[in-house]
């Protein structure tokens, strides 16, 4: 799980080169972009769409890219571009301009019947539920997908400063996680 971001960093430099190759007609480059981003987009999509819709949405995203290849130019960050296109496609699909972004989908697997861990997950869940959908999405993009604030601002189509503000608001709410576990639990019980 932790390898995801590291892996991206390694190939990030070549993704943009692959993109140029694809625009020049290299389908192998396209295939490799497709393969390396499919799972990320899929997991991203699951945060606000049903699985079948996620599938359709990814399909349409790449189909558009293939069909309008001639009108697409070079992109600064392929991954951010794909996420952005995917999001736009999702808006079309759900016919709304708001995503109900859900970070905690169903059950969180608890490991090794760890009682403490299970409890801390409940706390975490409570905290996340207090975040706004937008805060959740930015948390996800930053801590799970490894986007920086500039990329997030481009991806979401909002100002850089807005990203910073939303993020610091979210961090404030999440800060208790850094405290000792029992302390967190205490706050949770109190509130």
């Amino acid at each position: 799980m932790g390898d995801v971001i590291n892996f991206n960093e390694e190939i990030n430099t070549t993704n943009e080169e692959l993109w140029i190759k694809f625009l020049e007609g290299d389908m192998k480059a396209f295939h490799s972009i497709y393969n390396s981003h499919y799972k990320m987009l899929y997991n991203f999509g699951l945060k606000f769409l049903k699985p079948a819709k996620v599938e359709d949405c990814i399909h349409d995203t790449f189909l558009n890219i293939l069909n309008y290849k001639t009108t697409i130019s070079e992109v600064k960050n392929v991954k951010a571009y794909l996420f952005k296109s995917f999001r736009n496609q999702a808006f079309k699909l759900i016919n709304s301009n708001k995503l109900d972004f859900n970070l905690v989908e169903g059950n969180i697997p608890s490991r090794d019947d760890d009682y403490d861990n299970e409890k801390s997950i409940i706390v975490l869940k409570q905290l996340i539920e207090k975040l706004s959908p937008r805060e959740r999405e930015i948390i996800y993009l930053k801590y799970f997908q490894g986007f920086n604030n500039i990329e997030i601002s481009e991806l979401l189509g909002i100002k850089y400063q807005t990203v910073r503000n939303i993020l610091s608001g979210a961090i404030k709410k999440m800060r208790v996680l850094g405290d000792d576990f029992m302390h967190v639990l205490f706050i949770y019980v109190e509130s």
């Binding site: 932790g2 997991n43 970070l103 997950i121 996340i128 999440m174």
Partner: peptide, 17 residues
Amino acid sequence: KAESIIKKIRSLNVEDT
């Protein structure tokens, strides 16, 4: 603290699909 916060957020395991 910062290290622990990120690790806890990540423990949501949302990449699990």
